[in-house]
């Protein structure tokens, strides 16, 4: 018998600190599989800001930088601009990317910053114990929306891919999920495409991954996947919102 599935090489062989059933681990693995398949571990620099994935620097075996809350796209910009031949990715949660780091996200996208952004949307602030996130669904109960998110008081959730797809600098804006094996396969293809875009200097690529937080949702891991499918996907439809080249004149250079 031959091994047909094992931990990717660039995914450090240490236990993950995430809660049981948290899908961060799946998303980490997909990124590592793409890095391995493209053979770019030695040329990749990852940036993980504050959130549950703040310690992801221990899990990815490429060079890693831990950034301040929300600032990963700016840090990645500094890395990429001074090292244009290296691969740079950020790995950010919803509070990080769509609240405190909105400006950094939008401007990295509009500059067509040639980086990959892995955006993990689980509709809550996991690390601090489950407060309302910019992506918290209307009606969703969190620690800071104990009666459910009321859009009249707390506004509406941000649909990041739809918003960023309006920007010329965005090459790829795609929303995927990790609730089923077919969705996971789709997610990996999207992440691969994002890294290939970077290789081909096409501009800013974001892959939004709908993810779970069983602990703070108060659900079992299996029920959390069901919620993702039943409640999140209808509000955040999966699909490709933009797929192009931010700098078509550069083609063939």
């Amino acid at each position: 018998m031959a091994v047909v599935f094992e931990r990717p090489k660039s995914f450090a062989d240490i236990p993950l600190h995430y809660c049981p059933g948290c899908t961060h681990g799946i998303i980490h693995r997909l990124v590592c599989e793409v890095i391995d398949e493209m053979g770019i571990e030695g040329d990749t620099i990852g940036v993980c800001p504050v959130g549950c994935s703040v310690m992801a620097y221990d899990y990815f075996t490429c060079d890693m930088i831990e950034a301040a809350h929300g600032r990963a796209p700016a840090v990645a910009t500094g890395v990429k601009r001074t090292n244009p031949d290296k691969f740079v990715f950020t790995y950010q949660g919803d509070g990080d990317l769509a609240a405190i780091g909105t400006a950094e996200t939008v401007h990295a996208a509009t500059r067509g910053e040639n980086i990959v952004v892995i955006f993990v949307n689980n509709t809550t602030y996991g690390m601090t114990g489950g407060q309302m996130a910019p992506t918290t669904l209307p009606g969703q109960v969190t620690q800071t929306t104990p009666f459910g998110r009321d859009p009249k008081l707390m506004g509406y959730p941000v649909r990041v891919c739809e918003m960023l797809a309006t920007l010329t600098g965005t090459a790829l804006a795609q929303r995927v999920a990790v609730d089923t094996v077919p969705h996971i396969r789709e997610a990996k293809k999207a992440i691969r495409k994002a890294f290939e875009n970077q290789r081909d200097k096409k501009g800013f690529s974001i892959v939004e991954v709908l993810s779970t937080c069983p602990t703070n949702w108060g659900l079992s891991p299996v029920d959390a996947l069901k919620r993702l499918n039943d409640e999140m996907i209808p509000y955040y439809p999966l699909g490709v919102y933009k797929d192009g080249n931010a700098f078509p004149e550069k083609e063939g250079e």
Binding site: A2, E6, G25, I26, H28
Partner: peptide, 19 residues
């Protein structure tokens, strides 16, 4: 059948599949 679907779903990458 060695389809590896369990391993793909595993958040802790704790499953090795052989075939």
């Amino acid at each position: 059948i060695g389809c590896a679907m369990c391993a793909m779903m595993c958040p802790d990458c704790a499953i090795v599949v052989e075939k």
